[in-house]
Design a protein around this nucleic acid. Structure first.
Lengths: 97, 97
DNA sequence: TTCGTTATTGGTCATATTGCCATATAGTAA
DNA sequence: TTACTATATGGCAATATGACCAATAACGAA
């Protein structure tokens, strides 16, 4: 497998996560599955915008969904994404010194 | 401190990393400091483009630089960014199943 | 079927990102 | 000084991203 290609793929995953609202969503999902409506309540803005953020996360393999009656629940597919928070926080901390 | 604000900051750090060329740079720097010229040889494209990627990484606290004569060397400021690779890879792996 | 609830998709505009070119700067040596 | 090497910066055009509104779809209840 080509190495550049792997960096390209990784970059896409990171870009999928690198957004304020999507980080809020991931952070919430790291504490258990949640409906679109509740995520919307958390994130704010237009519901359709939240839905698009979720579609993007799903397309990149970060989350998956499950429908129950008329409600759709999302959950993390790869819990390790929490490491990103730790890492980003550490970069921010280091920067201040 | 406001929580949303923290997500915003984290998102900026992740965006700084979420680019093919910048991941290549970070990956290389994770194995020790390196000059701009050598990074350019690795990444390809225009040298000025590489320089801008480095400026962006520096502005976000991911790397720092040191000048020796006419050569500028860059190095990682926060080694934990390697966790990002692990995590992104895991997301990619999970997606395939 | 028709209606209400929940979520997704299409369209469009504004803004952000990226890459290349040309130019400028920092440092060294002659 | 001039010239040379190594990097950085300004500017611009192409593309990508994000937010909203409107329209649509999926499902259950009446």
């Amino acid at each position: 497998m080509d190495k550049n290609n792997h960096f390209t793929k990784q970059a896409k995953v990171l870009r999928a996560l690198a957004h304020e609202s999507r980080l809020m969503i991931v952070d919430r999902l790291s504490r258990g599955e949640c409906s679109v409506g509740d995520l919307h309540g958390l994130v704010g803005g237009d519901l359709s915008t939240v839905s698009k953020h979720l579609a993007l996360l799903r397309a990149h393999g970060v989350v998956e969904d499950r429908r129950e009656r008329t409600t759709v629940y999302y959950r993390l597919l790869t819990p390790c994404v929490c490491n990103l928070f730790t890492c980003a926080t550490q970069v921010l901390k280091e920067r201040k010194r």
